[in-house]
Write a protein that binds this DNA or RNA. Structure first.
Lengths: 230, 230
DNA sequence: CGGGGTCTTAACGGTGGCTTAACGAGACAT
DNA sequence: ATGTCTCGTTAAGCCACCGTTAAGACCCCG
Protein backbone atom coordinates (compact mmCIF):
# COMPACT_ATOMS: atom_id res chain seq x y z
CA UNK A 1 0.00 0.00 0.00
CA UNK A 2 1.31 3.38 -0.99
CA UNK A 3 0.07 6.84 -1.71
CA UNK A 4 0.66 7.91 -5.26
CA UNK A 5 0.11 10.72 -7.69
CA UNK A 6 -0.60 10.00 -11.32
CA UNK A 7 0.23 12.78 -13.76
CA UNK A 8 -1.24 11.86 -17.13
CA UNK A 9 -3.24 13.93 -19.59
CA UNK A 10 -5.11 11.14 -21.34
CA UNK A 11 -8.34 10.79 -19.37
CA UNK A 12 -8.96 7.17 -20.32
CA UNK A 13 -5.50 5.99 -19.40
CA UNK A 14 -5.62 7.99 -16.20
CA UNK A 15 -8.89 6.61 -14.90
CA UNK A 16 -8.02 3.08 -15.93
CA UNK A 17 -4.72 3.25 -14.07
CA UNK A 18 -6.32 4.84 -11.06
CA UNK A 19 -8.96 2.18 -10.83
CA UNK A 20 -6.49 -0.65 -11.25
CA UNK A 21 -4.10 0.70 -8.65
CA UNK A 22 -6.83 1.46 -6.15
CA UNK A 23 -8.01 -2.09 -6.49
CA UNK A 24 -4.56 -3.15 -5.45
CA UNK A 25 -4.77 -1.12 -2.30
CA UNK A 26 -3.04 2.11 -3.18
CA UNK A 27 -4.26 5.62 -2.50
CA UNK A 28 -4.29 7.41 -5.82
CA UNK A 29 -4.47 11.12 -6.67
CA UNK A 30 -4.68 12.39 -10.20
CA UNK A 31 -3.51 15.37 -12.18
CA UNK A 32 -3.74 16.04 -15.89
CA UNK A 33 -1.11 18.76 -16.09
CA UNK A 34 2.42 19.19 -14.85
CA UNK A 35 1.55 22.18 -12.71
CA UNK A 36 -1.44 20.45 -11.21
CA UNK A 37 0.73 17.45 -10.49
CA UNK A 38 3.34 19.57 -8.81
CA UNK A 39 0.72 21.09 -6.52
CA UNK A 40 -0.58 17.65 -5.60
CA UNK A 41 2.89 16.46 -4.81
CA UNK A 42 3.67 19.47 -2.67
CA UNK A 43 0.40 19.15 -0.81
CA UNK A 44 0.35 15.42 -0.22
CA UNK A 45 3.96 14.22 -0.31
CA UNK A 46 3.16 10.92 -1.99
CA UNK A 47 5.42 7.89 -1.92
CA UNK A 48 5.31 7.39 -5.65
CA UNK A 49 4.74 9.57 -8.69
CA UNK A 50 3.67 8.01 -11.96
CA UNK A 51 4.56 10.48 -14.66
CA UNK A 52 3.56 10.62 -18.29
CA UNK A 53 5.87 12.37 -20.67
CA UNK A 54 4.28 14.60 -23.31
CA UNK A 55 2.15 16.64 -20.99
CA UNK A 56 0.37 19.65 -22.48
CA UNK A 57 1.86 22.41 -20.37
CA UNK A 58 5.41 21.28 -19.64
CA UNK A 59 7.89 18.70 -20.76
CA UNK A 60 8.06 15.76 -18.39
CA UNK A 61 11.78 16.09 -17.97
CA UNK A 62 11.33 19.70 -17.00
CA UNK A 63 8.84 18.67 -14.38
CA UNK A 64 11.24 16.02 -13.12
CA UNK A 65 13.86 18.63 -12.47
CA UNK A 66 11.35 20.69 -10.53
CA UNK A 67 10.12 17.69 -8.59
CA UNK A 68 13.44 16.29 -7.52
CA UNK A 69 14.46 19.01 -5.06
CA UNK A 70 11.10 19.11 -3.34
CA UNK A 71 10.09 15.48 -3.18
CA UNK A 72 11.65 12.25 -2.11
CA UNK A 73 9.05 10.25 -3.99
CA UNK A 74 9.93 7.45 -6.33
CA UNK A 75 9.25 8.65 -9.87
CA UNK A 76 8.13 6.10 -12.40
CA UNK A 77 7.93 7.43 -15.93
CA UNK A 78 5.27 5.83 -18.08
CA UNK A 79 5.35 6.76 -21.70
CA UNK A 80 5.02 5.67 -25.28
CA UNK A 81 8.42 7.05 -26.19
CA UNK A 82 10.88 4.26 -26.54
CA UNK A 83 14.07 5.77 -27.92
CA UNK A 84 17.18 4.72 -26.09
CA UNK A 85 18.30 8.31 -25.95
CA UNK A 86 15.05 9.47 -24.41
CA UNK A 87 15.24 6.81 -21.73
CA UNK A 88 18.76 7.79 -20.82
CA UNK A 89 17.89 11.45 -20.65
CA UNK A 90 14.91 10.78 -18.46
CA UNK A 91 16.63 8.47 -16.01
CA UNK A 92 19.44 10.93 -15.92
CA UNK A 93 17.09 13.69 -14.95
CA UNK A 94 16.19 11.73 -11.84
CA UNK A 95 13.54 9.22 -12.76
CA UNK A 96 13.72 5.96 -10.87
CA UNK A 97 12.07 3.68 -13.35
CA UNK A 98 10.82 3.71 -16.89
CA UNK A 99 7.89 1.78 -18.34
CA UNK A 100 6.91 1.93 -21.98
CA UNK A 101 3.29 1.80 -23.03
CA UNK A 102 1.44 -0.36 -23.40
CA UNK A 103 1.94 -2.02 -20.05
CA UNK A 104 -0.31 -3.99 -17.73
CA UNK A 105 -1.44 -2.59 -14.39
CA UNK A 106 0.19 -5.65 -12.90
CA UNK A 107 3.57 -4.63 -14.21
CA UNK A 108 3.15 -1.10 -12.94
CA UNK A 109 2.09 -2.35 -9.56
CA UNK A 110 5.06 -4.67 -9.44
CA UNK A 111 7.37 -1.80 -10.22
CA UNK A 112 5.76 0.37 -7.59
CA UNK A 113 6.20 -2.27 -4.94
CA UNK A 114 9.73 -2.98 -6.08
CA UNK A 115 10.61 0.69 -5.87
CA UNK A 116 9.14 1.02 -2.43
CA UNK A 117 10.96 -2.02 -1.20
CA UNK A 118 14.11 -0.64 -2.68
CA UNK A 119 13.75 2.46 -0.56
CA UNK A 120 12.27 0.60 2.37
CA UNK A 121 15.40 0.07 4.39
CA UNK A 122 16.94 3.36 3.50
CA UNK A 123 14.09 5.81 3.39
CA UNK A 124 15.09 9.36 2.64
CA UNK A 125 18.46 8.17 1.47
CA UNK A 126 18.29 10.35 -1.56
CA UNK A 127 17.62 13.50 0.42
CA UNK A 128 19.89 12.78 3.33
CA UNK A 129 22.24 15.56 4.39
CA UNK A 130 25.79 14.44 5.01
CA UNK A 131 28.74 15.98 6.78
CA UNK A 132 32.23 14.60 6.30
CA UNK A 133 34.97 16.57 7.92
CA UNK A 134 34.60 20.17 6.81
CA UNK A 135 32.45 19.05 3.92
CA UNK A 136 28.75 19.77 4.27
CA UNK A 137 26.28 18.47 1.72
CA UNK A 138 22.73 19.72 1.64
CA UNK A 139 20.75 17.26 -0.41
CA UNK A 140 17.54 19.22 -0.93
CA UNK A 141 19.12 22.46 -2.01
CA UNK A 142 21.93 20.53 -3.68
CA UNK A 143 24.64 22.81 -2.45
CA UNK A 144 27.94 21.91 -0.93
CA UNK A 145 30.28 23.84 1.28
CA UNK A 146 33.81 23.13 2.34
CA UNK A 147 34.46 24.96 5.56
CA UNK A 148 32.90 28.37 5.06
CA UNK A 149 33.30 28.25 1.31
CA UNK A 150 30.52 27.34 -1.10
CA UNK A 151 31.36 24.94 -3.91
CA UNK A 152 29.84 25.15 -7.38
CA UNK A 153 29.31 21.59 -8.50
CA UNK A 154 27.69 20.28 -11.64
CA UNK A 155 24.89 17.76 -11.40
CA UNK A 156 27.04 14.65 -11.82
CA UNK A 157 29.72 16.03 -9.57
CA UNK A 158 27.16 16.57 -6.86
CA UNK A 159 25.57 13.16 -7.27
CA UNK A 160 28.94 11.47 -7.21
CA UNK A 161 30.13 13.31 -4.13
CA UNK A 162 26.83 12.77 -2.39
CA UNK A 163 26.94 9.05 -3.04
CA UNK A 164 30.50 8.74 -1.84
CA UNK A 165 29.70 10.81 1.24
CA UNK A 166 26.71 8.63 2.09
CA UNK A 167 29.11 5.70 2.06
CA UNK A 168 31.93 7.41 3.86
CA UNK A 169 34.92 5.19 4.36
CA UNK A 170 33.69 2.46 2.06
CA UNK A 171 35.55 1.70 -1.11
CA UNK A 172 33.10 1.87 -4.00
CA UNK A 173 33.94 0.31 -7.34
CA UNK A 174 33.55 2.33 -10.49
CA UNK A 175 31.09 -0.18 -11.82
CA UNK A 176 28.86 0.38 -8.84
CA UNK A 177 29.23 4.12 -9.20
CA UNK A 178 28.22 3.92 -12.83
CA UNK A 179 25.19 1.93 -11.84
CA UNK A 180 24.18 4.02 -8.83
CA UNK A 181 25.12 7.50 -9.94
CA UNK A 182 25.00 7.27 -13.71
CA UNK A 183 22.16 4.74 -13.86
CA UNK A 184 23.94 3.28 -16.86
CA UNK A 185 26.63 0.72 -16.20
CA UNK A 186 26.91 -0.49 -19.76
CA UNK A 187 27.37 2.24 -22.32
CA UNK A 188 29.63 4.38 -20.19
CA UNK A 189 33.14 3.57 -19.21
CA UNK A 190 35.12 3.76 -15.99
CA UNK A 191 37.06 6.61 -17.51
CA UNK A 192 34.05 8.85 -17.07
CA UNK A 193 34.28 8.34 -13.34
CA UNK A 194 37.96 9.19 -13.38
CA UNK A 195 37.32 12.48 -15.10
CA UNK A 196 34.60 13.52 -12.69
CA UNK A 197 36.74 12.52 -9.75
CA UNK A 198 39.52 14.65 -11.14
CA UNK A 199 37.22 17.67 -11.39
CA UNK A 200 35.89 17.05 -7.91
CA UNK A 201 39.36 16.93 -6.49
CA UNK A 202 40.20 20.21 -8.14
CA UNK A 203 37.14 21.86 -6.63
CA UNK A 204 37.91 20.35 -3.26
CA UNK A 205 41.37 21.87 -3.46
CA UNK A 206 43.27 18.63 -3.43
CA UNK A 207 45.36 16.61 -5.84
CA UNK A 208 45.51 12.91 -6.62
CA UNK A 209 48.93 12.49 -5.07
CA UNK A 210 47.93 14.43 -1.96
CA UNK A 211 44.38 13.35 -1.39
CA UNK A 212 42.45 14.71 1.56
CA UNK A 213 38.91 13.55 0.97
CA UNK A 214 38.85 11.44 -2.16
CA UNK A 215 41.11 8.42 -2.09
CA UNK A 216 41.62 6.05 -5.01
CA UNK A 217 42.25 2.45 -4.12
CA UNK A 218 44.03 1.07 -7.11
CA UNK A 219 42.20 -1.75 -8.84
CA UNK A 220 39.28 -1.54 -6.45
CA UNK A 221 37.55 1.81 -6.44
CA UNK A 222 37.14 5.14 -4.70
CA UNK A 223 36.43 6.10 -1.13
CA UNK A 224 35.73 9.35 0.64
CA UNK A 225 37.24 10.06 4.02
CA UNK A 226 37.43 12.92 6.45
CA UNK A 227 40.99 14.17 6.24
CA UNK A 228 43.21 13.08 9.10
CA UNK A 229 45.28 16.23 9.24
CA UNK A 230 43.75 19.58 10.20
CA UNK B 1 13.97 -18.86 5.81
CA UNK B 2 16.10 -16.46 3.88
CA UNK B 3 15.85 -13.07 2.29
CA UNK B 4 16.35 -13.19 -1.42
CA UNK B 5 16.37 -11.05 -4.51
CA UNK B 6 15.07 -12.39 -7.79
CA UNK B 7 16.39 -10.74 -10.92
CA UNK B 8 14.35 -11.94 -13.87
CA UNK B 9 12.80 -9.99 -16.71
CA UNK B 10 9.96 -12.31 -17.57
CA UNK B 11 7.05 -11.11 -15.44
CA UNK B 12 5.27 -14.45 -15.38
CA UNK B 13 8.30 -16.42 -14.29
CA UNK B 14 9.16 -13.79 -11.75
CA UNK B 15 5.81 -13.64 -10.04
CA UNK B 16 5.45 -17.40 -10.10
CA UNK B 17 8.83 -17.83 -8.45
CA UNK B 18 8.14 -15.13 -5.93
CA UNK B 19 4.86 -16.64 -4.92
CA UNK B 20 6.30 -20.11 -4.64
CA UNK B 21 9.27 -19.00 -2.58
CA UNK B 22 7.20 -16.80 -0.30
CA UNK B 23 4.97 -19.77 0.38
CA UNK B 24 8.06 -21.61 1.52
CA UNK B 25 8.81 -18.90 4.04
CA UNK B 26 11.32 -16.72 2.27
CA UNK B 27 11.26 -12.95 2.01
CA UNK B 28 11.42 -12.16 -1.68
CA UNK B 29 12.29 -8.97 -3.49
CA UNK B 30 12.04 -8.63 -7.23
CA UNK B 31 13.79 -6.78 -10.00
CA UNK B 32 13.38 -7.08 -13.73
CA UNK B 33 16.62 -5.42 -14.73
CA UNK B 34 20.23 -5.79 -13.75
CA UNK B 35 20.29 -2.22 -12.53
CA UNK B 36 17.23 -2.58 -10.38
CA UNK B 37 18.60 -5.81 -9.03
CA UNK B 38 21.88 -4.22 -8.10
CA UNK B 39 20.08 -1.48 -6.25
CA UNK B 40 18.01 -3.99 -4.34
CA UNK B 41 21.08 -5.96 -3.40
CA UNK B 42 22.94 -2.88 -2.25
CA UNK B 43 20.02 -1.66 -0.21
CA UNK B 44 18.99 -4.92 1.41
CA UNK B 45 21.99 -7.22 1.44
CA UNK B 46 19.99 -10.39 0.83
CA UNK B 47 21.21 -13.88 1.63
CA UNK B 48 20.52 -15.25 -1.81
CA UNK B 49 20.28 -13.83 -5.31
CA UNK B 50 18.43 -15.72 -8.01
CA UNK B 51 19.70 -14.40 -11.30
CA UNK B 52 18.38 -14.85 -14.80
CA UNK B 53 20.85 -14.51 -17.64
CA UNK B 54 19.68 -12.63 -20.71
CA UNK B 55 18.48 -9.54 -18.94
CA UNK B 56 17.48 -6.62 -21.11
CA UNK B 57 19.99 -4.08 -19.91
CA UNK B 58 23.10 -6.00 -19.03
CA UNK B 59 24.63 -9.40 -19.49
CA UNK B 60 24.17 -11.55 -16.43
CA UNK B 61 27.85 -12.36 -16.22
CA UNK B 62 28.68 -8.68 -16.23
CA UNK B 63 26.25 -8.16 -13.39
CA UNK B 64 27.85 -11.03 -11.51
CA UNK B 65 31.20 -9.34 -11.68
CA UNK B 66 29.67 -6.19 -10.27
CA UNK B 67 27.81 -8.07 -7.58
CA UNK B 68 30.67 -10.12 -6.28
CA UNK B 69 32.66 -7.40 -4.58
CA UNK B 70 29.67 -5.80 -2.91
CA UNK B 71 27.63 -8.74 -1.77
CA UNK B 72 28.20 -11.97 0.08
CA UNK B 73 24.97 -13.41 -1.14
CA UNK B 74 24.80 -16.85 -2.62
CA UNK B 75 24.14 -16.38 -6.32
CA UNK B 76 22.02 -18.97 -8.06
CA UNK B 77 21.86 -18.54 -11.80
CA UNK B 78 18.62 -19.70 -13.35
CA UNK B 79 18.55 -19.68 -17.11
CA UNK B 80 17.51 -21.41 -20.28
CA UNK B 81 21.04 -21.41 -21.63
CA UNK B 82 22.57 -24.83 -21.38
CA UNK B 83 25.88 -24.67 -23.19
CA UNK B 84 28.74 -26.15 -21.25
CA UNK B 85 30.88 -23.15 -22.02
CA UNK B 86 28.26 -20.75 -20.71
CA UNK B 87 27.99 -22.65 -17.46
CA UNK B 88 31.73 -22.61 -16.91
CA UNK B 89 31.95 -18.92 -17.70
CA UNK B 90 29.17 -18.13 -15.31
CA UNK B 91 30.40 -20.19 -12.40
CA UNK B 92 33.82 -18.77 -12.98
CA UNK B 93 32.47 -15.26 -12.70
CA UNK B 94 31.31 -16.00 -9.19
CA UNK B 95 28.01 -17.83 -9.38
CA UNK B 96 27.48 -20.43 -6.68
CA UNK B 97 24.97 -22.60 -8.43
CA UNK B 98 23.42 -23.04 -11.85
CA UNK B 99 19.92 -24.26 -12.65
CA UNK B 100 18.60 -24.66 -16.17
CA UNK B 101 15.01 -23.88 -17.01
CA UNK B 102 12.56 -25.32 -16.75
CA UNK B 103 12.87 -26.19 -13.09
CA UNK B 104 10.40 -26.64 -10.28
CA UNK B 105 10.17 -24.19 -7.38
CA UNK B 106 10.89 -27.14 -5.17
CA UNK B 107 14.21 -27.68 -6.82
CA UNK B 108 15.09 -24.02 -6.49
CA UNK B 109 14.10 -23.99 -2.85
CA UNK B 110 16.20 -27.06 -2.24
CA UNK B 111 19.19 -25.39 -3.82
CA UNK B 112 18.64 -22.26 -1.79
CA UNK B 113 18.58 -24.21 1.43
CA UNK B 114 21.59 -26.22 0.34
CA UNK B 115 23.50 -23.05 -0.42
CA UNK B 116 22.64 -21.55 2.92
CA UNK B 117 23.75 -24.67 4.68
CA UNK B 118 26.99 -24.52 2.75
CA UNK B 119 27.42 -20.96 3.91
CA UNK B 120 27.03 -22.31 7.43
CA UNK B 121 25.25 -19.28 8.78
CA UNK B 122 28.45 -17.32 8.45
CA UNK B 123 26.99 -14.03 7.38
CA UNK B 124 28.97 -11.41 5.61
CA UNK B 125 32.08 -13.44 4.87
CA UNK B 126 33.33 -11.21 2.14
CA UNK B 127 32.74 -7.94 3.96
CA UNK B 128 33.58 -9.13 7.45
CA UNK B 129 36.05 -7.29 9.63
CA UNK B 130 38.68 -9.51 11.17
CA UNK B 131 41.07 -9.13 14.07
CA UNK B 132 43.97 -11.50 14.55
CA UNK B 133 46.35 -10.56 17.29
CA UNK B 134 47.39 -6.97 16.72
CA UNK B 135 46.23 -7.22 13.13
CA UNK B 136 43.01 -5.43 12.31
CA UNK B 137 41.40 -5.74 8.90
CA UNK B 138 38.55 -3.53 7.80
CA UNK B 139 36.98 -5.07 4.74
CA UNK B 140 34.75 -2.23 3.62
CA UNK B 141 37.39 0.48 3.74
CA UNK B 142 40.16 -1.98 2.91
CA UNK B 143 42.37 -0.64 5.68
CA UNK B 144 44.78 -2.82 7.58
CA UNK B 145 46.59 -1.86 10.74
CA UNK B 146 49.16 -3.69 12.79
CA UNK B 147 49.05 -2.31 16.27
CA UNK B 148 48.74 1.42 15.82
CA UNK B 149 50.45 1.39 12.47
CA UNK B 150 48.63 1.51 9.14
CA UNK B 151 49.77 -0.89 6.45
CA UNK B 152 49.74 -0.04 2.74
CA UNK B 153 48.73 -3.20 0.94
CA UNK B 154 48.11 -3.80 -2.72
CA UNK B 155 44.90 -5.39 -3.88
CA UNK B 156 46.11 -8.97 -3.99
CA UNK B 157 48.01 -8.58 -0.77
CA UNK B 158 44.89 -7.36 0.94
CA UNK B 159 42.68 -10.08 -0.51
CA UNK B 160 45.18 -12.75 0.42
CA UNK B 161 45.64 -11.53 3.96
CA UNK B 162 41.91 -11.08 4.41
CA UNK B 163 41.23 -14.60 3.24
CA UNK B 164 43.86 -16.09 5.50
CA UNK B 165 42.60 -14.04 8.42
CA UNK B 166 39.05 -15.21 7.87
CA UNK B 167 40.35 -18.73 8.17
CA UNK B 168 42.66 -18.10 11.07
CA UNK B 169 44.53 -21.20 12.14
CA UNK B 170 43.53 -23.25 9.13
CA UNK B 171 46.15 -24.37 6.69
CA UNK B 172 45.07 -23.29 3.22
CA UNK B 173 46.60 -24.90 0.16
CA UNK B 174 47.95 -22.74 -2.59
CA UNK B 175 45.53 -24.28 -5.03
CA UNK B 176 42.66 -23.17 -2.86
CA UNK B 177 44.15 -19.72 -2.52
CA UNK B 178 44.49 -19.43 -6.27
CA UNK B 179 40.87 -20.39 -6.63
CA UNK B 180 39.48 -18.22 -3.84
CA UNK B 181 41.69 -15.17 -4.03
CA UNK B 182 42.89 -15.22 -7.61
CA UNK B 183 39.73 -16.71 -9.09
CA UNK B 184 41.95 -18.49 -11.59
CA UNK B 185 43.20 -21.84 -10.40
CA UNK B 186 44.48 -22.97 -13.79
CA UNK B 187 46.59 -20.40 -15.51
CA UNK B 188 48.51 -19.10 -12.53
CA UNK B 189 51.15 -20.96 -10.64
CA UNK B 190 51.80 -21.59 -6.97
CA UNK B 191 54.87 -19.44 -7.23
CA UNK B 192 52.67 -16.37 -7.47
CA UNK B 193 51.35 -17.13 -4.02
CA UNK B 194 54.85 -17.49 -2.65
CA UNK B 195 55.83 -14.10 -3.93
CA UNK B 196 52.83 -12.39 -2.45
CA UNK B 197 53.34 -14.12 0.86
CA UNK B 198 56.89 -12.90 0.86
CA UNK B 199 55.79 -9.32 0.33
CA UNK B 200 53.17 -9.65 3.00
CA UNK B 201 55.68 -10.90 5.50
CA UNK B 202 57.93 -7.97 4.77
CA UNK B 203 55.10 -5.52 5.39
CA UNK B 204 54.12 -7.36 8.54
CA UNK B 205 57.69 -7.00 9.76
CA UNK B 206 58.49 -10.67 9.93
CA UNK B 207 60.69 -13.13 8.08
CA UNK B 208 60.09 -16.64 6.82
CA UNK B 209 62.43 -18.24 9.34
CA UNK B 210 60.92 -16.25 12.21
CA UNK B 211 57.25 -16.18 11.34
CA UNK B 212 54.83 -14.41 13.63
CA UNK B 213 51.59 -14.33 11.68
CA UNK B 214 52.11 -16.18 8.42
CA UNK B 215 53.27 -19.75 8.75
CA UNK B 216 54.14 -22.03 5.86
CA UNK B 217 53.40 -25.69 6.29
CA UNK B 218 55.65 -27.45 3.89
CA UNK B 219 53.87 -29.45 1.23
CA UNK B 220 50.46 -28.39 2.52
CA UNK B 221 49.90 -24.67 2.46
CA UNK B 222 49.78 -21.46 4.45
CA UNK B 223 48.10 -20.50 7.68
CA UNK B 224 47.73 -17.32 9.64
CA UNK B 225 48.04 -17.26 13.40
CA UNK B 226 48.10 -14.73 16.17
CA UNK B 227 51.70 -14.66 17.39
CA UNK B 228 52.36 -16.55 20.61
CA UNK B 229 55.27 -14.41 21.79
CA UNK B 230 54.80 -10.85 22.99
C1' DC C 1 20.73 30.48 -33.57
C1' DG C 2 24.80 31.46 -31.00
C1' DG C 3 27.25 30.87 -26.37
C1' DG C 4 28.03 28.83 -21.90
C1' DG C 5 27.87 24.89 -19.32
C1' DT C 6 28.16 19.92 -18.92
C1' DC C 7 29.18 15.31 -20.01
C1' DT C 8 31.65 11.77 -22.55
C1' DT C 9 35.37 10.04 -25.02
C1' DA C 10 39.98 9.94 -26.81
C1' DA C 11 44.84 10.34 -26.14
C1' DC C 12 48.99 10.28 -23.57
C1' DG C 13 52.17 9.80 -19.88
C1' DG C 14 53.30 7.78 -15.72
C1' DT C 15 53.55 4.16 -12.50
C1' DG C 16 52.19 0.56 -9.59
C1' DG C 17 51.18 -4.17 -9.27
C1' DC C 18 51.25 -8.80 -10.97
C1' DT C 19 53.44 -12.51 -12.97
C1' DT C 20 57.27 -15.03 -14.41
C1' DA C 21 61.95 -16.28 -14.36
C1' DA C 22 66.14 -17.27 -11.98
C1' DC C 23 68.87 -18.53 -8.18
C1' DG C 24 69.72 -20.31 -3.53
C1' DA C 25 68.72 -22.83 0.52
C1' DG C 26 66.77 -26.38 3.12
C1' DA C 27 63.98 -30.59 3.54
C1' DC C 28 63.06 -35.13 2.31
C1' DA C 29 63.59 -39.54 0.08
C1' DT C 30 66.46 -42.90 -1.86
C1' DA D 1 75.67 -38.14 -0.49
C1' DT D 2 72.91 -36.86 -4.17
C1' DG D 3 69.08 -35.58 -6.60
C1' DT D 4 64.43 -33.78 -6.28
C1' DC D 5 61.11 -31.01 -4.51
C1' DT D 6 59.40 -27.04 -2.01
C1' DC D 7 59.93 -22.64 -0.43
C1' DG D 8 61.96 -17.70 -0.05
C1' DT D 9 63.56 -13.77 -2.24
C1' DT D 10 64.97 -10.50 -5.74
C1' DA D 11 64.88 -8.60 -10.20
C1' DA D 12 62.75 -7.66 -14.65
C1' DG D 13 59.18 -6.87 -17.91
C1' DC D 14 54.72 -6.30 -19.06
C1' DC D 15 50.18 -4.75 -18.62
C1' DA D 16 46.29 -2.37 -16.45
C1' DC D 17 44.94 1.27 -14.17
C1' DC D 18 44.92 6.13 -13.00
C1' DG D 19 45.20 11.31 -13.64
C1' DT D 20 44.77 14.86 -16.65
C1' DT D 21 43.92 17.73 -20.65
C1' DA D 22 41.64 18.70 -24.76
C1' DA D 23 38.21 18.08 -28.09
C1' DG D 24 33.70 17.08 -29.58
C1' DA D 25 28.65 16.35 -28.68
C1' DC D 26 24.82 17.69 -26.46
C1' DC D 27 21.69 20.42 -23.80
C1' DC D 28 19.90 24.76 -22.14
C1' DC D 29 19.27 29.43 -22.12
C1' DG D 30 18.41 33.78 -23.80
Amino acid sequence: MASLVIIEDDLRVRTALTKALEQRGHVVMQADTAMGGLQLVLAHKPDVIVLDLGLPDLDGVELLRMLRPVSDAVVIVATARVSEEEIVRTLDAGADDYVTKPFSPDQLDARIRASLRRLGGVAGERTRDVVVGALRINARSRDVSLGDQKLELSRKEFDLLHYLARHEGQVISKKVLLAEVWHQPFFTTDKTVDVHVSWLRRKLGETADRPRYIHSVRGVGIKLLAPVDV
